[in-house]
C-alpha cells in the first residue's frame, strides 16, 4: 500500500516536472485538431466543381510558400475576413427584393482565434507545408514601384481584375480575396507564380488565367505593395471587418 502511494507520488512528481515541456504547443497537432476540418492540409486540390462547392477554407498544403509567417502570427490571433463572400461565394448568397444577389452575411462563419503561443506554433507548422514548391522560384519578384493611379488603371480598366477583388475596404468585387492586404499576407514570389497560372495550383480555381507578361506580373505585386502602404497611411491596417 505504502509503496503504491510512493509510486503514485513519484509519478505525480514526474507529471509536474513534465508540465513545462508539455505546455509548449505542438503546431502540427494543433493544425490537425483545429484546422483540418475546414482546411486541406495534405492536398491535392479538388478537380471537380463539387469539390469547389464543399471547400470551407483555403487549401493550406502549400501555406509555407503562400503566406508570410509574421502575417500568419498576427492574423491567427485577430482574424479578419479576407474573402467577403466566403471561400465559395455560391454558398453565401441571398436574393434581395429586386432579384439581385447579395452576400448572406449570416451564413459566413467567423474564423477561430488562437493565443499568441498557439499562433506562433501554428505558423511554424504551416511554414513547413510546401507542396508544389517547384512552381515557385525564390527571387521571382524583383522589388520595384508603381504609382497607385497607374496600378488602379491596370487592375481596373486594362485587366478587369477589380470585377472580383476589392482594392480598398468597401470598393471592388466580392467573390475574390481582397487585394489591399495581399502584400502583408502573401509571399510575393508565390503571387507571381499563382497569377501566372492559377490552375497549376488549384485546377478548379475561380481565378481565370490571364495572358500576363512577366513585366505585368511584377507590376501587379508593386501595386499590391502600394495599396497596402496607402491603407497603412490611412490607418486602416488590415481588414475592415470580420
Amino acid at each position: 500500500m505504502a509503496r503504491r502511494h510512493l509510486t503514485g507520488l513519484l509519478a505525480g512528481g514526474a507529471l509536474l516536472l513534465a508540465v513545462p515541456a508539455a505546455a509548449a504547443v505542438d503546431g502540427r497537432a494543433l493544425l490537425e485538431e483545429r484546422c483540418a476540418s475546414c482546411h486541406d492540409l495534405t492536398g491535392p486540390a479538388p478537380t471537380t466543381v463539387e469539390g469547389v462547392w464543399s471547400r470551407k477554407g483555403p487549401d493550406l498544403f502549400y501555406a509555407g510558400l503562400k503566406y508570410r509567417r509574421d502575417w500568419l502570427v498576427r492574423w491567427l490571433q485577430r482574424p479578419t475576413r479576407i474573402r467577403p463572400a466566403g471561400v465559395y461565394y455560391g454558398n453565401h448568397l441571398r436574393v434581395d427584393a429586386e432579384g439581385h444577389d447579395r452576400v448572406d452575411e449570416a451564413s459566413l462563419v467567423r474564423h477561430l482565434a488562437l493565443t499568441r503561443e498557439e499562433a506562433e506554433a501554428a505558423a511554424d507548422a504551416l511554414m513547413r507545408l510546401r507542396a508544389k514548391s517547384e512552381l515557385v522560384r525564390p527571387g521571382a519578384y524583383q522589388p520595384g514601384r508603381i504609382s497607385l493611379s497607374m496600378g488602379d488603371l491596370m487592375f481596373g480598366k486594362f485587366k478587369g481584375c477589380i470585377a472580383c477583388h476589392r482594392i480598398e475596404p468597401g470598393y471592388g468585387g466580392l467573390s475574390g480575396p481582397e487585394v489591399y492586404t495581399a502584400w502583408a499576407r502573401l509571399n510575393p514570389d508565390w503571387v507571381i507564380s499563382f497569377m501566372r497560372n492559377p490552375q497549376a495550383w488549384d485546377p478548379r480555381s475561380l481565378m481565370p488565367r490571364l495572358p500576363l507578361k512577366e513585366r505585368d506580373l511584377q507590376r501587379f505585386v508593386h501595386y499590391f505593395k502600394a495599396l497596402y502602404e496607402d491603407l497603412q497611411q490611412r490607418g486602416e491596417e488590415e481588414g475592415d471587418h470580420d
Partner: peptide, 17 residues
C-alpha cells in the same frame, strides 16, 4: 461555379460582383 459571381444566380446580370 464560374459565372454566378458576376452574372448572378438567376443569370440576369445581378451577381454579387
Amino acid at each position: 461555379t464560374y459565372c454566378w459571381q458576376c452574372h448572378g444566380s438567376r443569370g440576369t446580370g445581378h451577381g454579387i460582383n
